[in-house]
């Protein structure tokens, strides 16, 4: 088990180091997120109650769109110099490779989201810190759902020419339940409502989604990579 975790850590550290050197994915994703938030703030009246009501949904749409820029790079960064071959040849399990990459993506996505959140608060005149711990829980669970599915799709589409198009096409439809859960909970929390009996089922669904898709991905990734 420690060997597995060490391999996961090595892959995650490698991806993060490579990304921090180039900043290709994180810069693109962050810029995209901020531009979309800015453009939507012009489209809606930021003081309106309706805007605040839909702002949770808007926030997750921005995260999902901007996130694909990070997720697309995940396995694609292995293509120059045929680095994916070297990883597949190494005596590590597909699960360790997948989990390492997913963790690196998770860190990058969370960084993008945490920078975007205060900007969102300012542009939409939303007090998002009111229920900060609960909001962070939803952010962590929703982001993991996006990460695990996006990383798997990145592996699935790595060898096709239209991968930038295929990744969102394959990811978003499957992600709908998790996105709905994250949106509903975020909207409630931003509106000042707690997570209670009315909306706890969304939280349960989000957790279930994370567990199921993580397990399925860990089992299937070896087949996806090697055939």
């Amino acid at each position: 088990m420690t060997g597995f975790l060490r391999q996961v850590a090595v892959i995650a550290a490698k991806d993060l180091r490579a990304e921090l050197r180039t900043k290709e994915a994180i810069n693109g994703s962050l810029a995209f997120s901020l531009v979309i938030l800015l453009l939507f703030s012009f489209a809606f009246d930021p003081t309106g109650d309706t805007t605040r009501e839909i702002s949770g949904g808007l926030l997750w749409i921005v995260f999902a769109f901007a996130g694909t820029l990070i997720l697309n790079r995940s396995f694609a960064r292995e293509l120059p110099n045929d680095c994916l071959d070297a990883l597949i040849a190494a005596p590590i399990s597909g699960a360790a490779l997948f989990l390492g990459k997913a963790i690196a993506n998770y860190v990058l996505l969370l960084a993008m989201e945490l920078i975007s959140l205060p900007v969102f608060g300012i542009f939409y005149n939303v007090r998002w810190t009111g229920q900060f711990p609960e909001l962070m829980l939803v952010l962590l669970l929703g982001t993991w759902a996006l990460t695990v599915l996006g990383t798997m799709t990145s592996a699935l589409t790595v060898n096709i020419r239209l991968r930038e198009v295929m990744l969102p096409l394959l990811t978003y439809p499957v992600l709908v339940p998790a996105l709905m859960g994250a949106m509903q909970l975020t909207m409630a929390l931003i509106a000042g409502k707690p997570i209670d009996a009315d909306n706890v089922m969304w939280l349960k669904m989000l957790i279930g989604f994370d567990v199921i898709y993580t397990a399925v991905s860990l089992v299937l990734v070896e087949t996806v990579l090697v055939g």
Partner: peptide, 24 residues
């Protein structure tokens, strides 16, 4: 193989250390 299978963004020692770690 045909590709060199090392990472452009990493240094030479980082590349080899990475694979040394993966091979245990």
């Amino acid at each position: 193989g045909h590709g060199i299978s090392v990472y452009d963004e990493l240094s030479a020692i980082e590349n080899l250390t990475l694979f040394a770690r993966l091979y245990g």
